[in-house]
């Protein structure tokens, strides 16, 4: 696992994340002026998010452009990050998040959220906490953490979770497949444990950007 903050010169904040076989780039612009009047909020900023997979990110070439899956992931990413950001500090503005999946190997939505949160912090946007995401699931009858592509496709269940680690609040919880109540609890706890580990790497990445000297 590797996280790097501030990789893009032109974006206000950015992050590059490698986790498992995934390679993800996240860029944040803003808060900036919002020209689309109908989505403007007079009391807070809006978060707009675009998740996109590169044509070369998967085995068979992916047809470029938004599809049903990427529209869904864009929405849930924005929803997962929204509770963490102090939106009320920037009324009538927008924060734009762009997530590009360069290489996919199962669990890209979690990787995207984790990277986007580092990019938001890098952009200097005030947040209650970093958001960190990790999936658990069930494959070959066992509850496991961070499924690979094959485990996801052939396994019994997938459970992506995003949390704010300090308070433990869950900002994203999805489930695909079937789990018993006990298995669900086990998978959720496992995912939360995984999130906490990734959170350490997130903090490390942000601190590394500004070098070792701490004053």
């Amino acid at each position: 696992m590797k996280i790097e903050a501030g990789v893009l010169e032109r974006a206000d904040g950015s992050a590059y994340l490698e986790i498992g076989g995934n390679k993800v780039l996240a860029a944040v612009y803003g808060p900036r002026e919002l020209h689309v009047r109908r989505i403007m909020r007079p009391d807070m900023a809006v978060i707009r998010c675009r998740y996109n997979m590169a044509p070369f990110s998967v085995g068979d070439r992916k047809r470029p452009g938004p599809d049903r899956r990427s529209v869904e992931i864009s929405k849930i990413t924005a929803d997962a990050l929204r509770p963490a950001v102090f939106l009320e500090k920037f009324p009538r503005s927008t924060i734009d998040i762009f997530i590009e999946i360069l290489e996919a190997e199962g669990g890209t939505r979690c990787a995207g959220i984790t990277a986007a949160s580092v990019a938001l912090a890098d952009a200097g946007i005030p947040m209650r906490d970093l958001v960190v995401s990790c999936a658990a699931g069930k494959a070959n009858g066992n509850v496991v953490l961070d499924l690979s592509e094959n485990e996801d496709k052939e396994g019994e269940a997938d459970l992506p979770v995003a949390i704010m680690p300090r308070s433990g609040e869950i900002t994203l919880l999805q489930m695909d497949g079937h789990l018993t109540s006990e298995e669900f609890d086990k998978a959720l706890n496992l995912a939360v444990e995984g999130c906490k580990k990734i959170n350490e790497a997130q903090k490390e990445a942000i601190k590394n950007r500004y070098g070792e000297e701490n004053g």
């Binding site: 963490a84 912090a121 005030p126 947040m127 209650r128 906490d129 970093l130 704010m164 680690p165 300090r166 997130q202 903090k203 942000i206 601190k207 500004y210 701490n214 004053g215």
Partner: peptide, 8 residues
């Protein structure tokens, strides 16, 4: 004083 901190 002067420690580097991150959100949260």
């Amino acid at each position: 004083d002067k420690n580097l901190v991150v959100p949260g």
